[in-house]
Design a protein around this nucleic acid. Structure first.
Lengths: 243, 243
DNA sequence: TACACTTGTCTAGATCAATAGACATTTGAG
DNA sequence: CTCAAATGTCTATTGATCTAGACAAGTGTA
């Protein structure tokens, strides 16, 4: 089967091929052998030189997705993307469940600032009203999965940063402010290339793709309590919507 | 503000910059002036040569997103991404609503084949059971937005292809088989670079990103009636999940 | 008109991406 | 052991990408 790659697109052939092989691995296309086809075969399928395939495989090996052994071939080390569920009851740590052994959310920083534009309208507050911003990075089994900036109305949740720092959980920090339950009301998703900051924070092999979500959580009366912008490493994660 | 771009990543600088400007436009960052900053300013912000910025703007002009006028500057022509809503009642044509004036879904082809792997498990049928495949491309105001392959159990919906060809609607084709209502039960989302076929069918400036969704629709008893794989042009669409 | 500012075009050189071919090294099977 | 098959390394060459600088041409304002 001939697999098409495009030239002169601003995306190097080796990166296109790396993306395709990564997808094929997570689709289980190579499960029978447990390894990626030989370089010469791949070069034939994609219609490129063997060295170009080697660059692609080097990138995948760098990500820890495959392991290359001289004389044997290229073995698949890790298959699945982590599936991040999005539902009315989305809670970050619960959703990943058994997919990763150990989950960590690290607070990068926090600030109090005035809300404008999308932040104010999403939270349903007046422009200029104070909000608490939390910037976090979350990882599973040591690999960073997402970076987020979350915003909370300062009038209602004044101690958000301190509570989160102590409790390491948004749900518990809400509870400390007397909010026992909340639901996800909307999530918007776009895909784009990662920028420099995201590359370093997510430890991505640069040029990678991120899934950016803008989400709103509200209390049971429908009043927004959190507006959040998250970037997920697209080649490690998929989003699963349950409706 | 210094905006970071990464070198030697397999993604050309002009493409990274085009992605960032496209995002800034759709975020409304340039709404005050209604135009993109001058090339020299952008070159300074991104830390690259003016010619590199010109390549990025040329790509955006090619997409019809901006219009460049010598002496004046680079005007923004089109801002918003089309927002595709995903909910329990997801219907393709209804959701786009007022965002596009004219919606078209064209049948590329259909086939009857045996279901295996993800198709069979998603539809809850035995491996080898027959399914009807419909391949379609959907566009809004003449611009292609998505390509899809959808699968239906042939035992229950034997005339799916013919009905769809006549009625131009999955919902109506279901109704013709006696199914009056159905709901979306799950949607999985990944992001990746488009392959050659997708580039030509979606008329993308090559190297672009697609959002790939795998979705399951079921009847009111919970029995799956459709399994669908869709690819959305990521720089023209966002997905909006309502929960 | 004169001028500042913007995009358009051209040339030249440096760096990166991809091709081509040759050969070494390791592994597993016979 | 021998050999086929796979990955590793090297050199050389071509084409794409990016930088650098200079100047042309169009737009709007004073």
């Amino acid at each position: 089967m001939r697999k098409v790659v495009e030239r002169q697109t601003g995306v190097a052939l080796w990166r296109q091929i790396a993306d395709r092989i990564r997808l094929a691995i997570s689709n289980g296309d190579y499960d029978a052998a447990g390894m990626v086809p030989p370089e010469t075969v791949l070069a034939g399928e994609f219609g490129v030189n063997r060295h170009t395939v080697r660059s692609a495989l080097a990138a995948l090996a760098d990500e820890g997705l495959v392991r290359r052994v001289q004389g044997r071939g290229t073995m698949i080390e890790r298959k699945e993307r982590v599936s991040y569920p999005i539902s009315r009851r989305t809670r970050f740590s619960q959703g990943l469940g058994r997919q990763v052994k150990e989950i960590g959310t690290r607070l990068l920083g926090h600030a109090e600032l005035k809300a404008f534009g999308e932040i104010a309208t999403s939270l349903g507050i007046a422009p200029g009203d104070p909000v608490i911003e939390l910037r976090t990075v979350s990882s599973g089994d040591g690999r960073p999965l997402s970076v987020s900036s979350s915003y909370y109305p300062a009038a209602r949740f004044p101690r958000m940063a301190q509570e989160f720092e102590q409790l390491h959980s948004v749900t518990k920090a809400f509870a400390a402010h007397g909010l026992d339950d909340y639901v996800r009301v909307s999530t918007e998703i776009v895909a784009r290339h990662a920028d420099g900051d995201e590359l370093s924070m997510l430890k991505l092999s640069a040029g990678a793709i991120v899934l950016e979500t803008h989400s709103i959580n509200a209390d049971l009366d429908g009043k927004p309590v959190e507006y959040s912008r998250s970037c997920f490493a697209a080649d490690r994660m998929k989003l699963k919507i349950e409706t």
